[in-house]
């Protein structure tokens, strides 16, 4: 597990690529593209992305930095060991579901 700094415009994960890592935003701003929809997440409301890595699926969204950003990067076993059964993992699932529901027109 490590903290990585990204410059604006850097692609962190890309839809369709094998998911290896889960990322947590510590500071900065990220644009998340899911299908034809875009969301912006910022450190005001820290979010997790890349949950696909936990189940061996490919990434289903593309995340790109909007400004200088710091992210914690961890693999699936690290994530489950440290954050499994905590509010972090619950919040991560909630935001994963929320983005999906918005694109589906459910909310």
């Amino acid at each position: 597990m490590e903290t990585i700094e990204f410059e604006p415009g850097q692609e962190i994960i890309k839809e369709g690529e094998e998911a290896q890592y889960i990322y947590m935003l510590k500071s900065g701003k990220i644009k998340v593209q899911l299908g034809l929809y875009e969301f912006v997440i910022s450190d005001n409301n820290p979010e997790v992305f890349g949950l696909e890595a936990l189940v061996g699926e490919k990434y289903t969204e593309t995340c790109t930095t909007v400004e200088n950003s710091k992210l914690i990067c961890c693999n699936s076993s690290e994530f489950m060991e440290i954050y499994g059964k905590t509010e972090v993992s619950k919040k991560a699932l909630e935001s994963f579901m929320r983005r999906t529901a918005k694109v589906l027109g459910w909310i």
């Binding site: 696909e52 189940v55 289903t60 699932l93 579901m97």
Partner: peptide, 24 residues
């Protein structure tokens, strides 16, 4: 429980997302 089903739920949400790509 959410904890027990955590990974399965992620799989289900990914399935929903596949619908998004199919209909996009």
């Amino acid at each position: 429980s959410l904890e027990d089903e955590y990974l399965n739920i992620i799989k289900r949400i990914i399935e929903l997302r596949k619908v998004i790509f199919e209909s996009s």
